[in-house]
Amino acid sequence: MLDEIGAGSADSTARLGWTGLVRFLHLAPRAFLPMRAMEQLVLVAGQGIEGDRYMIGREEGYYSHKPEEGRQVTLFELETLIALKRDAGIELGPEEHRRNVTVEGVPLNHLVGRRFWLGETLLEATRLSIPCRHIEEITGKAIFDPLINRSGLNCRILQGGIVRVGDTVRNAA
């Protein structure tokens, strides 16, 4: 049925349209370490983010024992942080969700399987991120449940480059 109405096709997503912004960029070189805010990140096609724990070949992340091509860069919605505060009274900062890129105005959950531009880089969304108990241990905040189904997006880097705070995010369909 969904196929018949063309739901979620590249065509419909492009037609309905959205553009968003890169609001925060973060990385950490090793598991458990605090994420550091950056003005820009260097994305390497097929590899990951320079200096980040999940960069292929570096393997210093909490999940590095389970290599995954589609986790080269991870995104998170600023709107989720706002909703956590509004609906659950939880103050979570963009450095605490442990994804690399915090975007605004980008419907991450709609993008699985699609390509989009993050500044000058081209990404392909591979799957939704799932929350992890480990984040409660690191942040000391009970955020596992509230993050179910809005825990961000895992992506593969098709075309590398430099991503800066303030860059535009847009559909590549």
């Binding site: 950490a28 070189p29 090793r30 458990f32 370490l33 605090p34 550091r36 690191i138």
Partner: peptide, 8 residues
């Protein structure tokens, strides 16, 4: 930290 990154 080996690179003197901030610790938790």
């Amino acid at each position: 930290d080996p690179d003197r990154w901030a610790l938790p």
